[in-house]
């Protein structure tokens, strides 16, 4: 028997997969941000765009009729991106610091004890890392839902309440599923393109043509597709799912 929680998560995935495929032009534009992200500001703009995706998701409903956000007001987008990145850094620094503390303690212990301490430290920081990741994701949604107030991203008790209303288990399952779906889509698409070009290359080789060019072309097309279509698609998908998960609380 399917529980309500399972259908809820599946609905989130279905809606997000459809939502991200709604407009290929937005994907290309977001891909351009990814391409120029070595100039730093476009990287923040891309995150700012995802801020808007979450903003539509947390205020929207699970029906797939929400529009994709616009590409305008770049300064606002930039600031929003910086805010999201700040929240991410602030949360993810906690497990790192805890792990470093364990490392620092282990330096003063003898060899067997220090190995044990490092092991325990690893376990504890992984658990805390998972919790921090959940808090961070829901915290970002909570911040965006409350009009972008940075202090709301660190209102631990409110965020904990929100997670409890959705259910810790549901949250973890959703994110595990997200990671699996993302990995599968990314690897399958690049594998398909790779296979097509390998087939071209091999058949060309059997015909006696120099096929090095075809492999290089295949590699380039693969990176372009990943950069401009799959990458933006998956990022919109992930953030939309995150936002919908937040809006699942009663």
């Amino acid at each position: 028997m399917i529980t309500t929680g399972d259908t809820m998560i599946l609905d989130i995935y279905k809606d997000s997969l459809e939502y991200a495929a709604k407009d290929w032009k937005s994907l290309i534009k977001l891909g351009a941000f990814f391409l120029f992200s070595f100039l730093i500001i476009p990287a923040f703009l891309a995150v700012g765009y995802n801020y808007r995706v979450i903003n539509i998701a947390v205020n929207g409903v699970l029906n797939g009729k929400d529009p994709l956000p616009e590409f305008d007001d770049f300064i606002g987008m930039f600031i929003d991106g910086v805010k999201v990145v700040l929240v991410q850094i602030a949360y993810l620094i906690v497990p790192v610091i805890i792990f470093l503390i364990f490392v620092a303690i282990s330096i003063y212990a003898n060899s067997v004890l220090s190995a044990a301490i490092i092991l325990i430290g690893c376990l504890i920081s992984i658990i805390i890392g998972i919790i921090a990741f959940l808090m961070e994701q829901i915290g970002i949604c909570h911040m965006i839902y409350n009009g972008g107030s940075l202090s709301k991203a660190f209102a631990i008790s409110e965020i904990k309440e929100a997670i409890e209303e959705i259910g810790w288990f549901n949250c973890i399952i959703t994110y595990v599923g997200l990671i699996i779906i993302t990995a599968v889509i990314a690897s399958v698409t690049s594998m398909i393109i790779g296979l097509i070009f390998t087939a071209f290359g091999v058949s060309g080789f059997l015909l006696g043509v120099n096929t090095a060019g075809i492999f290089i072309l295949g590699f380039m097309i693969n990176s372009l597709v990943t950069l401009f279509i799959i990458g933006p698609y998956l990022s919109i998908f992930n953030f939309r799912s995150s936002g919908l998960l937040y809006s699942m609380q009663i």
Partner: peptide
Amino acid sequence: MASITDYVKEGLKY
């Protein structure tokens, strides 16, 4: 304004 960071946003646009 909802968020104090909106002032920074406004300042950048100004």
